[in-house]
Design a protein around this nucleic acid. Structure first.
Lengths: 123, 123
DNA sequence: CAGAATCCTTTTTGATACTG
DNA sequence: CAGTATCAAAAAGGATTCTG
């Protein structure tokens, strides 16, 4: 066996990490609880549908907690990290950190690879 | 800013990690160099097309190295991790490890969430 | 404010057949 | 052995409209 634990078993987390919105949402909530439209403004490019879908998925998995604040005039919904959500943050930060340190090299690797293909497609 | 480095900048790695085949391929190669069909047998459920696409992408990014062995009767192609590929392995292992430790809890969270929805869809 | 619902486009993946 | 090419299916994502 290659990975610690069964390969199939870990797919939920891997697909979680693979989701660009999911990781972003968790990292934004790592700053503290936020409301729906507040997150929407911070992520900017996310569509309303995707924010909802993303938050619903994270709530279902138990990474975040959804709390409806009823005692206010415009009904507000606050999202925050659960303990498990807090627990992944360091892992995601490591990932982001590694990525930030290697993104330039990867971009260059791609350029080289692509230009080699273009100039000599038959190899 | 939420993440170390720009959010947009890290997407290549995040999408790399999100790919279930990609992670699997790297982890399998962390055992040592392998040939194409050898990997195909080990991953079992991967389609030929996806293995090719996955390996090509990893090679383009510089995570793996493709080496054609010409001095043998049936032409062989060997894949191995590049130094950068080796460098991500610990990170992927951490991820897998964390996942393995939480997969059961996540599965239960989902069950609870889904059954609450089913019994009381209006809340 | 915080969404749900619908429709439509794009991206990913899989199955199948063929090749040097 | 190690692919490529093509087509079909599925999944993800976005735009728009509507609501308590």
């Amino acid at each position: 066996m290659v990975v610690p634990g069964d390969c199939e078993e870990i797919s939920p987390i891997l697909s979680m990490v693979g989701n660009k919105w999911t990781v972003l949402a968790i990292l934004i909530l790592s700053e503290g609880p936020k409301r729906y439209n507040q997150m929407r403004r911070e992520i900017e490019t996310i569509s309303q549908r995707m924010l909802t879908v993303t938050l619903r998925g994270l709530e279902r998995d138990g990474f975040i907690v959804r709390r409806v604040i009823t005692d206010r005039a415009p009904p507000q919904v606050e999202y925050s990290l659960s303990p498990m959500g807090e627990a992944v943050v360091p892992l995601l930060f490591s990932l982001c950190d590694w990525s930030a340190r290697h993104v330039a090299k990867i971009a260059e690797n791609r350029r080289v690879f692509d230009s080699q293909r273009a100039s000599d497609p038959c190899v």
